[in-house]
């Protein structure tokens, strides 16, 4: 059994079927990327995986840790928007899972890890988009999850910030041995972050194609192999009539 097994037979909103016969699994230590055009149901699939959406037919199974800690769920979510509580400071937002009595040492460690030292008492309104997303990443890591689900987490920031945040997530996830499933519509991002890429077609096309990224880490964004794989991806997407 894998760390995370998703098997969605059908997911519909009213009469429109959004997802149909989708099987996806995440292995321990793996970085999986779900690539697809806007509106193909990526967010819906990820919300199902997170247990936020239970109105579907099929099953999701998460292998719980050996300690079986029921209090902290083994899955954490980073949303497309930071979704910080505007009335809480950076530190309080990061420790949100534990409310008022959060673990200060762990929060301070995370603040340093995401590069926000000195901003513990800052309110979200004074943060830039990139800083806010760093807080959201730290908040997801606070519960010490084994699986991280990320829904287009860098799509709202500029290209330079995006590259920095990608490297940050890779570093933090590697340090902690976390597996992640990331959703994106950016081919370069998929190739840079993923060990395995699942491509979704438009409509309820399901997963059209998947490929392994056989490039060692740390990767160089300019690597020739990545460019080759990008042309493979484009070919596959063209075959699936996505582009």
């Amino acid at each position: 059994m894998s760390l995370l097994d998703i098997d969605v037979r059908e997911k519909a909103f009213g009469k429109t079927i959004v997802l149909h016969d989708i099987k996806l699994s995440l292995e321990n230590g793996q970085a999986a990327v779900l690539l697809g055009p806007s509106g193909c149901g990526k967010s819906t699939l990820l919300r199902i995986a997170a247990g936020l959406d239970k109105q579907f037919s099929g099953s999701v199974s998460v292998k719980t840790g050996h300690d079986g800690n029921a209090k902290s769920p083994p899955v954490a979510f980073v949303f497309q928007e930071p979704r910080l509580m505007p009335w809480l400071t950076v530190a309080q937002n990061i420790g949100f899972a534990d409310g008022g009595k959060f673990d200060t040492a762990r929060v301070n460690g995370l603040i340093a890890d995401v590069g926000l030292t000195g901003h513990a008492a800052t309110l979200p309104k004074a943060l830039s988009g990139g800083m806010a997303q760093r807080v959201a990443i730290a908040r997801a890591l606070y519960t010490e999850p084994r699986i991280l689900l990320l829904d287009e987490p860098f799509s709202a920031v500029d290209a330079f910030t995006r590259m920095k945040l990608q490297d940050l997530v890779l570093k933090l996830v590697e340090q902690r041995g976390i597996s992640f499933l990331l959703v994106t519509h950016d081919i370069d991002e998929a190739l840079y972050l993923g060990d395995r890429i699942y491509m979704m077609g438009a409509g309820d096309g399901g997963i059209q194609h998947d490929l392994s990224v056989d490039v060692a880490r740390p990767r160089d964004r300019r690597a020739a192999r990545l460019a080759e794989l990008k042309s493979d991806v484009l070919t596959a997407l063209q075959a699936a009539h996505v582009i």
Binding site: P73, A76, F79, R83, M85, G99, T143
Partner: peptide
Amino acid sequence: RKLVEVGEMYRQPLPV
């Protein structure tokens, strides 16, 4: 609803 979802992600019960 997006903020409420953050709480649901942590399995927080309704009073919390």
